[in-house]
């Protein structure tokens, strides 16, 4: 049943009313605006998971921001293996479901164990990492190897 549904869509897309050229252009546009290409890393970064992550780089370091509201810093484990950074921890939100006198109206916040793995640039120095946590944001700063820094080459 589902197979035929997919075939239908396929037929629609192969229809002569939609020339291939148009689709190529559409895909290009999609890549430009959404940045979602059909090609992705073998270790893609999962979206919409807890905790949210922002990444940035400077010439000398890689900066990682992990949004961990309500998580105590000592319950987070960080580990770097080559260029893979693992962030692991747990946040248990207490809600007493047995208590009949309270009613739960919204439960959007994540509760339980979490683990995220990020692939960092290959030139990171695993021995030179610092991390701090403030207002529910964990900031990890990983230095890059000096060889990776941009160098000015003198012409003799």
């Amino acid at each position: 049943m589902y197979g035929s549904l997919f075939n239908l869509t396929d037929g629609l897309f192969n229809h002569s009313a939609f020339p291939n050229k148009l689709f190529n252009e559409l895909e290009q546009l999609q890549q430009q605006f959404g940045g979602r290409s059909i090609v992705s890393n073998i270790r893609p970064i999962a979206r919409g998971t807890f905790p949210a992550i922002n990444l940035g780089t400077t010439d000398s370091s890689v900066e990682v921001l992990v949004f961990v509201p309500g998580v105590a810093a000592d319950s987070i484990q960080l580990q770097i293996d080559k260029n893979r950074l693992t962030i692991e921890g747990e946040r248990q939100l207490k809600h007493n479901a047995d208590d009949k006198k309270t009613t739960l109206y919204a439960q959007e916040r994540f509760s339980g164990k979490f683990k995220r793995v990020i692939t960092l640039p290959e030139d990171v120095d695993v021995n030179n990492v610092s991390a701090s946590c403030q207002d529910g944001v964990l900031k990890i700063s990983i230095q890059r190897h000096a060889e990776a820094l941009p160098k000015r080459i003198a012409i003799h």
């Binding site: 949004f67 961990v68 509201p69 309500g70 939100l93 809600h95 006198k101 309270t102 009613t103 739960l104 109206y105 919204a106 439960q107 959007e108 916040r109 994540f110 207002d135 529910g136 944001v137």
Partner: peptide, 23 residues
Amino acid sequence: PLVNITEAEDGFTLTAEMPGVPK
């Protein structure tokens, strides 16, 4: 902000996640 909301006899409790916002 993501929220949890519960109602008890004496009132509502609302928790909202706003990481990165100082007090």
